[in-house]
Write a protein that binds this DNA or RNA. Structure first.
Lengths: 229, 229
DNA sequence: TTTTGGGTGAACAATTTGTAAAAACTGTCG
DNA sequence: CGACAGTTTTTACAAATTGTTCACCCAAAA
């Protein structure tokens, strides 16, 4: 059965984003919006790991951390805005197992979660981050795009965008969704950025296979369409 | 023949993880999910060592420990969630040889197992920590790097970094992951430290073989890439 | 035809890495 | 203890790579 991750975070956007990503990786996710509810949910669901924001309404992150640690060794990762080293030291002293500064990349969060679980003697949920469609292979573990066995050098943003689109084939994403989910919740750029990345991906994938396509949905966004068969 | 380790542990995840790790190190592993089955398996397989969880359904760890100790001097290591010292004293009084608190690191478990076996006059099984790629040999037992049969003097950190990267070829590691896993999760230094070590490794390994490469994955991290094969 | 949204190439900006050199450590030996 | 040799970490800057914006034009809806 899937491991459960408890996210204690009052910013809805961040929480949702984390959930989206972690669920894609095979974790079950429960969200609590403040410290007290966090402790409550902790008892209720007995998660395998807790992601804990430091700044919280009500009981702050340190308090929750101490409370949980007083009764359990469940791994805790703190999320904080400050990048001061002393804050990290403080965190680890309070019993946290690791510490991530915002803004963070999903990729980093996942890596930390797996590292912490492994350290705690818990087997991390390891969905293979590798998608195959006909002659196309998107391998996020090796960070490699392969077409017909041949490697195609591809910059990180393009990889992540393609991976994101392809992990739910046929589903349309708006540009803003993609900016949120691939670029990060704190990204404030132009939506046309997405267009350019799609264009570059199309160049790379042109004529590779007729079984799938990076398709524009007019006035909505883009999707990775897998045809028939 | 490989020594057998009996693991008495009801949490399937932990048991599996231990098995995975110990088998990689060259031990044969047998798992029992509760105290009674533990005693049973003990008679059946006559293990070289027993890893024994304290909290078990049916007969608890202490009971199993006493039962085994009553008839044999087979080394026993207790696994427990509590970190209380009194628990440890209790454990050793009941005849356990050592004691590990969860969450534990696999590395630590292995070290304890080897120490206990050695103390008991049994030769520990130790898998060769040695990787070979074409002309390159990374031997962590001798702590030696060999290229084409010739030894290349290499400082410890570089050895460990290379070994870590090479133990999962083609997989990308972020700098933070490497810092976590090679330097230790409580390391607070700069991520650029990794770059410098990679650079020095590259100097040593330059032009040695075209079958593998210490590769940069832009904006992500590094990997030990093995080509062809 | 008009309006709105998307494709595209190129310039420019920002980020990330390579590298060398200096500084900080470590452990050893006289 | 104090100098020394080897190792590790930090720093600074140049070089490489990637990300973003913008302008122009074309395509799709209305």
């Amino acid at each position: 059965m899937a491991k459960t991750v408890l996210i204690v975070e009052d910013d809805r956007n961040i929480a949702d984003l984390l959930r989206l990503y972690l669920e894609k990786e095979g974790y079950a996710v429960v969200i609590a919006p403040d410290g007290l509810k966090g402790v409550e949910k902790f008892h209720e669901v007995q998660p395998a790991l807790v992601l804990l924001d430091v700044m919280l309404p009500g009981m702050d992150g340190w308090g929750v951390c101490r409370t949980i640690r007083a009764e359990s060794k469940t791994p805790i990762i703190m999320l904080t805005a400050k990048s001061e080293t002393e804050d990290k030291v403080q965190g680890l002293k309070q019993g946290a197992d690791d510490y991530i500064t915002k803004p963070f990349e999903m990729k980093e969060v996942l890596a930390r979660i797996e590292a912490v679980l492994r350290r705690s003697g818990i087997e991390p949920e390891k969905a293979e981050r590798k998608l195959t469609f006909d002659k196309l292979v998107i391998d996020m573990d090796a960070f490699e795009l392969t077409v017909d066995g041949k490697k195609i050098p591809t910059p990180p943003k393009e990889m992540e965008l393609l991976y994101h689109l392809a992990s739910t084939p046929n589903r349309v994403y708006t540009r803003n969704q993609l900016l949120d989910e691939v670029w990060g919740f704190d990204y404030f750029g132009d939506t046309r950025t997405v267009d350019v990345h799609v264009k570059r991906l199309r160049e790379k994938l042109e004529g590779v296979s007729d079984k799938w396509e990076l398709k524009t949905v007019w006035s909505v966004g883009y999707k990775f369409e897998v045809t028939g068969r």
